[in-house]
Structures are given as C-alpha cells and as structure tokens.
C-alpha cells in the first residue's frame, strides 16, 4: 500500500518560510497569492497502513506544532490529523 503524509505548520504558528515565499512572488510578477504555508510531504509504502496514524503521531509529525493529513493511494480512505 502506498501512502502520502502531508505535514504543515499548525494554524496560528508563524511560518517564516511561507512569508518569505509570499513576499518573493510579487517581485517575480506573480500577484494575488496569500496565506502561503510551507510543509513537508512524506511518501511511503506500507505493509500495514493501520500503523500510519501512530507513525505520524510519534515521528513523522510533531502534533504540538504540525497538522498532518494521510492519503492512502491504492484506493484507500484519507484521514486527517488536524483536531
């Protein structure tokens, strides 16, 4: 089973990377982009997808500062780690 975990800074946490990219876009002539947030994508193959939530909580994301979304790619359901 293939899966993707999308990890992003929690709402309300300052994301200076996102802010920097947001400021850079108009300088390149791209206008109208806002609320840029930068996260991380983890792709993995799993024997047991049921372990994925625990993997996310314990290692892939830090739930104090990050939200995550899990996407199972071989026709499975998606779950969301946001509260």
């Amino acid at each position: 089973m293939k899966a993707r975990v999308l990890i992003r800074p929690k709402e309300g946490i300052l994301d200076p990377q996102g802010q920097t990219v947001e400021r850079a876009l108009p300088a390149l002539g791209f206008h109208g982009a806002s609320h840029v947030r930068i996260g991380r994508l983890v792709e993995l193959e799993l024997d047991d997808p049921e372990q994925l939530p625990a993997m996310c909580e314990k290692l892939l994301a830090n739930p104090l500062i990050e939200d995550y979304e899990v996407e199972l790619l071989d026709g499975g359901d998606s779950t969301n780690g946001a509260p």
């Binding site: 946490i13 990377q17 830090n62 500062i65």
Partner: peptide, 16 residues
C-alpha cells in the same frame, strides 16, 4: 522536547 521530557517545541528562527 521531542522526547516529551520537556514541554513545548523549537521552531526555525523567525529570521530563518
């Protein structure tokens, strides 16, 4: 902090 032995977390410096 990551080990849960202390409260909170450390994020990238605001200045990056």
């Amino acid at each position: 902090c990551e080990a849960g032995l202390l409260p909170g977390a450390l994020l990238p410096n605001t200045s990056l």
